[in-house]
Structure formats: structure tokens, C-alpha cells
């Protein structure tokens, strides 16, 4: 973390500590607020789904109960949940001081997240319906777009947290990441916020999977 010394003035130790607390707090509350924001985004999709389903205009909500390819759905769902589980497990191990475990879990989570992303995009090429053929078809395309967005954010966040852990580890030694150093604290707060988001993505992914493939 760049400290306020960059701005050309000095802080007393109390001020530096205060600003560090504020910075860590910002990552914490920012992470939660971001999840709140994302919930409203996904809620708009859920609203669209149930609105069109209950309106069933021209009996065209979902003719013949047509469904997007379920094997893709399952694969994306499982990969997303695996990402979530890996991120949460990694975070637990990190709290216990096992940085390498976190890094391994992180790279695995990144891999499953990228696999989910590729599958989610690939699925669009094998849909058994035309996007505008029904209410279900339309909302499914909306779901795909949002899921792609979620997976891009997840992958980006995971990758950047991993890259920073490697860089900091190289520059200052592995143990520095577990120290009370400002940059290390900032990095750990970021990892924690990311884990919450990835967990949220897994839960919401499961909910949307149920809506689009099972209901």
C-alpha cells in the first residue's frame, strides 16, 4: 500500500495507524457493499425471470419446457461451486498461517473459475433455441451475460491477489505476507473481501442454476 508519505507530508505513528485501520476497514466494507450492489444486479435478472414467467405473454414463456443444455449447466455450476470452496478453504488455511496452501487453493480456484467461464461462453454456441424465441430463452441469455461477468470478476480478483502474493513474497520474503506490515495487512484484507465475493458468486450461481436448469 502506498502510504500518505507520497503526498509530501509526514504522519505521526498514531495517524499512520489510524489511516491503515481506515484503509483495511474500507476494503472490508467495500467488499460487502460490492456484494450488496451485485445482489441488486442479479435480483433484476431474477425479477425479469419471474415477471415474464408469471406474465407468460402469448403462452411464450417456455414452450415445450425447453431447457438450455443441462450438461453445460451442471459443469458450470460445479466449477463455480468448486471455485467457492477452494477460495474459502484457502482463506481458512491462510488464517492458520499456511500461505502456500492458500496459493495452491488460489491457483486451483482460478483454474476452475476460468474453466467455468470458458464453458459458459461455449454453451452459447450450442443452445437449442433462438434468443428471442421465448421469455425463458431471453432471460437465459441475460443470465449467461451476467454469469460471464461474474466469472470474469472472480478470475480477475483471484489472479491479481495471487500475483501480488507472489510479487510481495519475492520482494520481501514469504513471511512478510503474514506479518503486520501495512502492505501485508492490506493484501490479507483484499483476500478476505475476495473470498466473500467468490463465496457469494458460488451461492448465487447455485441459485441461478436451479432457476434456469431445474425449475
Amino acid at each position: 500500500m502506498k502510504t500518505i508519505q507520497d503526498q509530501g507530508y509526514t504522519s505521526t505513528p498514531e495517524e499512520a495507524e489510524f489511516e491503515l485501520r481506515a484503509h483495511i476497514g474500507s476494503i472490508w466494507s467495500g467488499g460487502r457493499l460490492f456484494i450488496g450492489m451485485y445482489t441488486f444486479l442479479l435480483a433484476s435478472l431474477v425479477f425479469a425471470y419471474f415477471y415474464l414467467r408469471s406474465a407468460n405473454n402469448g403462452l411464450l414463456w417456455r414452450p415445450d419446457h425447453i431447457t438450455a443444455p443441462t450438461h453445460y449447466g451442471w459443469a458450470v455450476f460445479l466449477a463455480t461451486v468448486a471455485t467457492g470452496i477452494m477460495a474459502v478453504t484457502g482463506q481458512r488455511r491462510l488464517r492458520g498461517g499456511a500461505l502456500i496452501d492458500w496459493q495452491v487453493a488460489g491457483w486451483t480456484a482460478l483454474t476452475t473459475s476460468v474453466i467455468a467461464l470458458i464453458l459458459q461462453i461455449w454453451e452459447l454456441s450450442s443452445l437449442p433455441f433462438y434468443p428471442g424465441s421465448s421469455g425463458y430463452a431471453s432471460t437465459f441469455i441475460g443470465f449467461s451475460v451476467f454469469n460471464i461477468m461474474t466469472l470474469v470478476i472472480t478470475s480477475f480478483w483471484l489472479e491479481t491477489a495471487l500475483a501480488r502474493s507472489h510479487r510481495l513474497g519475492r520482494e520481501r520474503g514469504r513471511n512478510a505476507l503474514l506479518s503486520t506490515d501495512a502492505d501485508a495487512q492490506s493484501w490479507r484484507a483484499n483476500v478476505s473481501a475476495m473470498t466473500y465475493f467468490v463465496g457469494f458468486a458460488a451461492l448465487s450461481g447455485a441459485f441461478l442454476f436451479a432457476m434456469f436448469y431445474q425449475l
Binding site: 402469448g58 434468443p131 421469455g135
Partner: peptide
């Protein structure tokens, strides 16, 4: 999406709804 990939979110005749 309605305008580009031809979904029908807001097209009542295709199972969407302008409302």
C-alpha cells in the same frame, strides 16, 4: 441484448413484456 442478439425481454409478442 434485445437490439443486438435479438432476445425478447421487452417484446411482448415473443414472450417478453414491455412492462
Amino acid at each position: 441484448l434485445d437490439r443486438t442478439v435479438q432476445t425478447a425481454f421487452y417484446v411482448t409478442e415473443h414472450g417478453g413484456s414491455s412492462y
